[in-house]
Structures are given as structure tokens and as C-alpha cells.
Design a protein around this nucleic acid. Structure first.
Lengths: 228, 228
DNA sequence: CTAACATTGTTAAACTTTTAACAAAAAGGC
DNA sequence: GCCTTTTTGTTAAAAGTTTAACAATGTTAG
């Protein structure tokens, strides 16, 4: 059933090259559309159909997937459930990843609720804050501890990701403390560029930046319109 | 004082070409660092110093700026206040842009507070929601109206940007209604790809996608580590 | 079972973005 | 004032990304 390459053993020949960042960023989008299709009980889809839905070229979709293997069948297309599973695996979903969140303000609370992290295997195990009024609270079944407990907590619990939703002024110090405790992944919502060692990965969610980009694009349109 | 090109009238020769998206996305970062420097009362900076702070090459910084004009001086560098002002202008900041926000849940409330939108000229004028319990509330001096009032409100107020912080299921309908009222800019936090006409600009803040990218990068590191 | 069709994975070309190199020119020291 | 140093804006080369083209191959209908 599975394809056998006519040249021997070329499955995943590119595995050891670095996957382009551009490709990585598209995978979550593929995941979203495949989840949708799966939920609608669509069994199969061709690269051109899926690409059209997403708004990219079929060529790009096939090229992207080819970085990870051969998941389709000539003359048939892709099985939605199979491809969804592969993409999930590539993304590292459903692996029970432990997270802690630092900064229980409005943004922190919103993030805890947002989307279906839990369903995808991301579990927030503890929240930390420096405001004594909210320490001791339980938010969505997750306890809020004093920030001074951070190091102690991380020593005794398996946590892979730290989420920073503090004000900008506190973010770097929190990042430093997370790094010192061995955390290798930081999901940062504070509007500062964190300095961390090379072996730590920071994903920065650019909220303010994004509004500025929108503002600039609007501005450009206005200028173009008045030029013609 | 200002540079005169030795070839006649080549100031902003590229003005009518499309600015690359990659360049646009870096401008808010330049803005942030320049604001920092300005606040610290640094008067001048060279492209290499600034680039080093940001973590890019000096070449890229100069190339990016050259899309918009010549703001530096050979042998001296850039005046921080001047460059900050230019970048702000390019980004369309400080122009008193009116926004409405739809969806007064936790995320919506967090966004209203986040960062210094107001200081940069972005003013949220009204909030809309379909939950009668919160209609009538005042959040941060901004009134919450029933979503049914949306069209009426937009008819009588100058609004440039609509912010969508509704659940995914409601986002497309809200977007359609905003578009029908003539809104040209949408800042979308719901995890759906909105379909809008070509003359409307959507900026999507990819919260969930970003966590998946982090997860995937961590996964990759793990695989690399176990390979060696 | 065969032939026409559909669709993949891949190779190559086109395009975009980043980095390097350098002439031109202003700054700063002597 | 002149010479050395600094640093820009720009041109050219390198690297990365997207799109197009197509041989290989499984699917489907008759």
C-alpha cells in the first residue's frame, strides 16, 4: 500500500537538513484546515483543492509536505485523517506538554482560555504572579502561586514551556529565571525582544507590531489612491 | 543639510514600487528600539550599533530604510529623534485612528489594555457584544453596545479599524458586517482565515499558530539531539 | 484487463530577500 | 585646512523561497 521509492532508501532524505522557517510557519495553517475537513468528515482531498481553500499554490503545498515525507497517492490525493495525523506529529501535538504561565493579568487569563490548547496536548500546570491579592486564587482549575516559588516549583515538576504575560519591564528577568531552571521554550507576549542562550527557543507573539503593520498598510493604500 | 543626490531628483525613486512585506514587518521593531533609545536620551546611532541591538545585519537595516528615503549621514550615523519620527510617519502612527472592538470577552478586554495603543494614536471608541449581561457596561471608559447597533454606530462615526475578538464561529459574520459598512482594516484575533474583498486589509494575530511553531521547534531540537 | 485520467513528488526556473562590498562623503583629530 | 576614519546609500552577488513543468504511477471507467 505504501509507496516504495524506485531508488533505494530515499525516504525522508532531507531529514537532516534544516526545515525552512517559511515552511514551519505554514504547518499550523495546514493543521487548521485539515482539522476542519476532518470534522466535516471529508475523507480525501487533492493538493490543488486544499491549496485553493488555504489560498496558496498546490505546488507550494506539495513542496512543503515533501520536506517530511510522501503522504499522498498519485491519481487519488491525500487521506485527510492520515495527513492530519502526520502534520500533528510533525508539529509535536498531543504529547502532553507542561506549561507554566507568569503574569496573571488580563492577558494571561485570556491566553489560558484561548483556543483549545488542552485538546492539543498543552497543559498549563501553574500560574505565577507577584500580586499577593491574587496569589492563592484558582483560575480555571489552575493554582496561582507567588512568583518567589517559581524555582522551587520547576525543580519538582516536568515543565517544557514558560509563558510570559507580564508587563514588558518584568519580562527579561522572568525569562532569565526560566532559563536558569532549564526551560527550553518560551512563549512571550510582552513587547520586548528577550535575550536568551542559543539552546532556548523564544516564540514572540507580536500583538502591537501587528497593529502597526495594519496601520502602515492602510496608510499605503491611502497614498496609492491619492497618487492615481 | 539634507543630502542632495548627485543624479538629479532621485529622492524616493522607489516610492511607487511595492514595499516588500518582509520590510514592513521589521519597521515596528525598528520603531520599538528607536523609542527605547529616544527615551534613554541617546542622540545618535549608527546602522551597525542599532542592527546589533536588534539582532540583524547592518546591511539589512540600511537596505530597509533606503526604501523610504535617506535619513542618515555618512561618518555620523542617524539622529535617533529624526529617524524615530520618520519611522513613525511611515507606520502611520499618531494619526488618531478610530477603532471598534467586537467581542468583550477576556481576550477583548486584554487587548484594550495591552500596550500603549492610545499613546500611538489608536483609539477604541466603542465595544460590541451579543451578551445582554455586559451590554451597557463601561470598560476602560469605553461603552459596550449591543452587536445589533453595529451598523448604526458605524454610519455616524469615523472608524478605520475593526478589531475582532469573538469566538471563531462568529468571526466571519462580524467581518462581513464590518466590510459592508465600509471598514477597510480588520485586526483579527479569532483563529479563522477571514474571506474579505481585495480592498480590505486583514491582520491576523496568530496566537495558536505561534504555540504550534514553538512546539515544533522544540520537537526538532529533541530529534536533532537524539540523532547525534 | 486496458486505456484514459488524475495527481503526486521532484527537478528546474523564476523570483524575492539577504548579505557583502565599495565608492562617495561627512566627521573628527592634528 | 588636510588627512584619516567612520559610516552611509547603493550596486552586485549569494542564499532562500515560490512557482511551473513533467515523468512516474496509481485510480477509475468501460
Amino acid at each position: 500500500m505504501r509507496k516504495m521509492g524506485h531508488e533505494s532508501g530515499n525516504i525522508n532524505q532531507r531529514r537532516h537538513q534544516q526545515i525552512p522557517l517559511a515552511v514551519i510557519k505554514r504547518l499550523p495553517i495546514y493543521h487548521r484546515y485539515l482539522s476542519d475537513l476532518h470534522q466535516k468528515e471529508v475523507a480525501r482531498i487533492s493538493s490543488s483543492e486544499l491549496a485553493a481553500k488555504i489560498g496558496i499554490t498546490a505546488s507550494q503545498l506539495r513542496q512543503d509536505l515533501s520536506w517530511f515525507g510522501s503522504f499522498g497517492q498519485q491519481g487519488y490525493g491525500y487521506r485527510v485523517d492520515e495527513l492530519l495525523q502526520e502534520v500533528s506529529r510533525i508539529l509535536g501535538l498531543n504529547q502532553n506538554i507542561g506549561m507554566v504561565l507568569i503574569g496573571a493579568g488580563r492577558l494571561g487569563r485570556a491566553i489560558i482560555h484561548y483556543a483549545n490548547f488542552k485538546r492539543r496536548g498543552f497543559h498549563t500546570k501553574a500560574i505565577f504572579d507577584n500580586n499577593p491579592d491574587i496569589v492563592g486564587e484558582i483560575i480555571d482549575e489552575i493554582p496561582v502561586y507567588n512568583i518567589s516559588e517559581l524555582e522551587n516549583y520547576l525543580k519538582s515538576h516536568a515543565i517544557q514551556i514558560g509563558v510570559i504575560t507580564t508587563p514588558a519591564s518584568a519580562a527579561q528577568e522572568v525569562a532569565d529565571r526560566l532559563v536558569r531552571c532549564g526551560i527550553k521554550g518560551i512563549w512571550n507576549f510582552a513587547p520586548v525582544s528577550l535575550k536568551v542562550p542559543d539552546d532556548v527557543i523564544v516564540e514572540h507573539v507580536h500583538i502591537g507590531e501587528s497593529l502597526m503593520v495594519l496601520s502602515m498598510k492602510l496608510q499605503q493604500r491611502k497614498e496609492q489612491a491619492s497618487d492615481d
